[in-house]
Simulated scan of single mutants.
Amino acid sequence: MAEIPIRFANLGCAEIARKLSRAVILSPNSTLYAVGSRSLDKAKKFAAENGFPPSAKIYGSYEAVLDDPDVDVVYMPLPTSLHLKWAVLAAEKKKHLLLEKPAALNVGELDQIIGACEANGVQYMDGTLFMHHPRTAKMEEFISDSQRFGQLKTMHSFFSFTADDNYLKNNIRVKPDLDSLGALGDIGWYCIRGILWAANYELPKTVTAFRGPVLNGAGVILACGSSLLWEDGKTATFYCSFFSNLTMDLTVVGTKGTLHINDFANPRDEITSSFSAASETQFKDLLTGWVPLPSQHEMTIDLPQDACMVREFSRLVKSIKEDGSKPECKWPNISRKTQLVMDAVKESIEKGFQSIQIEAY
């Protein structure tokens, strides 16, 4: 008997939803079932341009999507200011929730979303794609190897792209009523998640924002950075910006090894990707070079990382639907930790770059 695919519905027609729609098509255990927008014409156009099957349901409201009993998963790429209302309602309608990042405006809102998912037995996951790339698991093997990597000491992440004038004036990421977290919530989310991933999701003790963040006239962050400090002395820094050339660097340094990746959030090639690892590197005699040289690790995968995410989410939903499994708590926990650090960076900026202590719960 053929496997019944998990039925996805898009709640909204944002640009990023085009990528997710393709991922659902590529994933072997999912199908595009429905799309809803506040405009029926917009929903029809989106479905026609993004590979939705002729049988797909097209709705002219978000409520209609959530009222459809055959929708298994709601993917939500709405502006962050709308997440709380619609994510909670989706959970109450027993829809599994794939929520675009940033997950919420603050951890209080996210707690309400996660609480609604837990109360209704539905799976929650945020849309941080690199978490699902097989390369990430391979890199984790290296930094978890005490013989090759040693003890984790410091991390640095950097994510930037050069936004044009139209983006800086009109994109939802620069509008305080839509996505007030700006660059911090958008690309800063990836920087923070990369650091937490490297630290095995151990929260830092304190967070201190760098001086000199760039804000627009409405007070939305366009560029910022921060340092992070752990109880045991581990450190990290990150910087995110809408004003620098496209860069996605993550460096993780241990007592014996170093990991470098130059496209951590979104690989330059979605099928073939690589990372650099060095172990017990020293200078040659007379400082004429390094030995041994860092090794390049390249891998080829069968599905791009966004389709890997959809495949994994569909697997979890299928297990809940058909086997009576409980929702996987790993994903809401990681999302909440990312939000806690992001909140602390924002608070540090607002309080004149004071050090903010992280309170886990």
Rank of each mutant, 00 (worst) to 15 (best):
A2Y: 12
I4W: 14
I6V: 11
I6F: 00
A9L: 02
C13L: 03
E15I: 13
R22E: 00
S27C: 09
N29C: 15
L32R: 02
A34H: 00
A34G: 06
V35L: 00
D41C: 02
A47G: 06
A48S: 08
N50T: 00
G51P: 14
K57H: 06
I58C: 07
D68A: 08
V71Q: 06
V73M: 00
V73N: 00
Y75I: 00
T80E: 04
K85C: 04
K85P: 07
W86I: 03
L89D: 15
A90L: 11
E92M: 04
L99P: 00
N106W: 02
V107L: 09
Q112C: 11
I114H: 01
I114A: 04
G115F: 13
E118T: 13
N120C: 01
V122N: 02
M125V: 14
T128E: 11
F130R: 07
R135T: 09
T136W: 06
A137D: 14
A137M: 13
F142R: 08
S144Q: 11
S146F: 13
S146C: 04
G150N: 09
G150V: 08
L152V: 04
H156K: 15
A163V: 06
K169L: 12
K175Q: 15
A183S: 10
A183T: 10
G188R: 10
N200M: 05
N200I: 04
Y201L: 01
G212P: 08
L215P: 08
G217R: 10
A218Y: 11
G219C: 05
L222I: 07
L222W: 03
C224L: 03
G225D: 05
S227D: 15
L228C: 02
K234W: 04
T237W: 07
S244R: 08
L246K: 14
D249S: 14
K256E: 10
H260N: 14
N262P: 00
D263Q: 06
T272D: 13
F275A: 03
A277L: 07
A277V: 14
T281F: 13
Q282D: 15
F283M: 09
K284W: 10
T288W: 12
G289I: 11
G289H: 08
V291S: 13
V291P: 08
P292W: 07
L293N: 13
S295K: 14
M299R: 10
P304Q: 11
P304E: 10
D306R: 02
A307N: 03
L316I: 12
V317K: 04
E322I: 03
S325R: 14
S325K: 15
P327F: 11
C329R: 12
W331A: 02
W331M: 03
N333E: 15
I334F: 15
S335T: 14
K337G: 05
T338L: 11
Q339D: 06
Q339G: 14
L340P: 05
L340V: 11
V341I: 12
V341H: 01
M342A: 15
D343W: 00
S348D: 03
S348E: 12
S348M: 03
I349N: 02
E350T: 12
K351N: 06
G352H: 01
F353S: 07
F353Q: 06
